[in-house]
């Protein structure tokens, strides 16, 4: 029998326990062991961005990350970005409103990238968004609408943050 290791992964604010082989990637752990199939596999080679997740708030390609590497880190997947009450994240809402997808298969990766792209401060102009969203391929060709959605969400998120800051100050 192949050797397995025990892992505890913190995903979307919940602790998940699993026994997997050490060679299992974060992507396969999510999809095959934890039934978190929102994260997509497009290439398994770090070339398409479909598997993008956040580890400690930064975007990573989960197909190039071993599950064992991310123990003790905060993992966020597409299933974990909407509000607890089910309200969509502004990026999710903007993707729907701008029709920023067709088949939807690249979409979780695009959204996770977009959330990070805005957080990184790389959503200042259309040109910048194009550049910083280019690690996520979309064969359906939703690029124009992705740019529009990220722009829209960036202003929504920024306004949201400002409003929140004010509340906290008050």
């Amino acid at each position: 029998m192949t050797r397995t290791i025990h892992l505890s992964l913190d995903i979307n604010g919940k602790r998940h326990e699993l026994d997997v082989e050490p060679r299992v990637t974060l992507l396969d752990a999510l999809r095959e062991s934890l039934a978190l199939t929102g994260t997509k596999k497009g290439c398994d080679q770090g070339q398409c961005g479909a598997c993008t997740c956040h580890v400690d708030g930064k975007r990573v390609l989960s197909c190039l990350t071993l599950a064992a590497q991310v123990e003790g880190r905060q993992i966020t997947t597409i299933e974990g970005i909407a509000a607890e009450n089910g309200d969509l994240h502004p990026v999710q809402a903007a993707f729907i409103e701008n029709d920023a997808f067709q088949c939807g298969y690249c979409t979780p990766g695009q959204i996770m990238s977009a959330v990070a792209c805005i957080r990184e401060g790389h959503a200042g102009s259309e040109e910048e968004i194009r550049e910083y969203m280019s690690g996520n391929l979309c064969r359906c060709g939703a690029y124009n609408s992705i740019v529009a959605a990220v722009r829209e969400a960036a202003s929504a998120v920024t306004t949201g943050i400002e409003a929140k800051d004010k509340v906290e100050v008050a």
Partner: peptide, 20 residues
Amino acid sequence: SRLDGKLKTTGGATYALEQP
């Protein structure tokens, strides 16, 4: 807007290799 938009943007749309 697409009626399947919410499923596709939340990871709820399940494709062929994702069936339990």
